[in-house]
Design a protein around this nucleic acid. Structure first.
Lengths: 225, 225
DNA sequence: TCGCATGACGAACACCGTTCGTCAAGAACA
DNA sequence: TGTTCTTGACGAACGGTGTTCGTCATGCGA
């Protein structure tokens, strides 16, 4: 940062106070990077650079990258809106999950991060509690509900991550598409017939449909043994 | 590898022929590492070391790690057993998915790898085709089926990955458990009441239950617009 | 005003994926 | 039997990563 450590600190003028670090400031900087460069830019050195400091400074506030990622995720999860008291439990549950999905989708790279990070911050708890309450209201038995929370959250997260993969200029999807295009009708008849439908549909359509499917399953299935 | 490049190659005795590299040999070595050290040991250098060569040699057969991972995944997916022609389509679909799940579960770290790798190898195609055929047999409409394949495979993969996280001596699950234990009854009543059920159940029970839930939802839901 | 706790941070360590240039072995051909 | 030419093997290096350690400065309590 400074040119020579032997001389006096000359240029405090340019960045007047250089506000001190904090978990909040670090999370904000990381979030900005996530949006600009995606998850690949989310390195300790890169975050520190944006804060005009060194990577080692971040370790005062976070034990490791996992912890920073968890804080990052929970920070964004604050934006998930819990549904109001109106409407059926199904509609409200769906609204909650759609909100969850859209929050993950809104920020580039966030869904991918959510997949590899176990969120257990206060905002996660808030969401879990709300889902449990809604399932309880819907008459879903307690054991089903407990496991259902995991099912719903995990699935919304993973579908967001998958769609994020498809959205970015990824070599993965193009490879799948080219593989599908090369499928012959006599070797894989069904796949051949549906090869265009397989990759069709935009994100929100597919995920809302999938959320419906899972809620349907949850509300009709019997309790786990 | 050799001590001095100036002298003659003296010790070819110890490893007589040093069988040449191949995609197959590399995948086998990588698989062995995956089983012994988990996904963290799966680096190019580490794989090469097991083959008694340098990392650069692997790039003759794989363009990058993504490609190697995809090959690795598809290689293991060969073990997924497609169900026989007997039984209802539901039972057979469930059997296929359970097999898929158990294959991912059997090898430490594989599920985690599957989450971040888009599988589009021949074995994936084989499985996709089978799922499509079963859904078709079950009268699920084509559009639902096309999206349902994605839903089913993605979900089985992610639940396997999550359970793998829990199985290994992970700091993640213990943190969740401790957070749940600290939940107060008046702040999060439902969560408090179900805090033991949330983390209960072993892997196969939960995943089989979840697979049932999704198939239920798929078979009752209407087509996507 | 004097310690002292604490945050900031440069340097270093041990890794990582990937590329490049070189070298040897084998195939193809004269 | 030479002689070229292709191809795989691979050491070294580049630029990145997470993390730790030792040191320095700052601001606060005494």
């Amino acid at each position: 940062m400074k040119q020579t450590p032997s001389q006096t600190v000359v240029s405090r003028r340019s960045r007047p106070a250089k506000s001190p670090l904090s978990r909040e400031a670090i999370v904000e900087a990381a979030l900005a990077i996530l949006e600009e460069e995606g998850v690949s830019g989310l390195s300790m050195r890169n975050i520190a650079k944006r804060l005009d400091t060194g990577a080692a400074s971040l370790y005062v506030y976070f034990a490791n990258t996992d912890e920073l990622h968890a804080a990052l995720l929970d920070h964004v999860l604050a934006e998930v809106v819990l549904p109001a008291r109106r409407g059926t439990w199904r509609d409200r549950l769906k609204a909650l999950l759609v909100s969850y999905h859209s929050v993950l989708e809104a920020r580039r790279g966030l869904a991918q991060l959510a997949l590899s990070t176990i969120a257990s911050g206060p905002n996660s708890l808030r969401i879990w509690e709300c889902i449990l309450a809604l399932l309880d209201e819907g008459g879903v038995c307690a054991a089903t509900a407990a496991w259902g929370v995991d099912l719903l959250v995990l699935y919304v997260t993973s579908i967001a991550a998958e769609q994020a993969l498809h959205t970015t200029d990824d070599r993965g999807l193009t490879r799948v598409a080219s593989v599908l295009a090369a499928v012959t009708a006599d070797e894989f008849p069904h796949l051949h017939g549906l090869r265009s439908e397989m990759t069709s549909g935009d994100g929100p359509d597919r995920s809302q449909w999938a959320i419906d499917v899972i809620i349907d399953g949850l509300s009709t299935s019997r309790p786990p043994a």
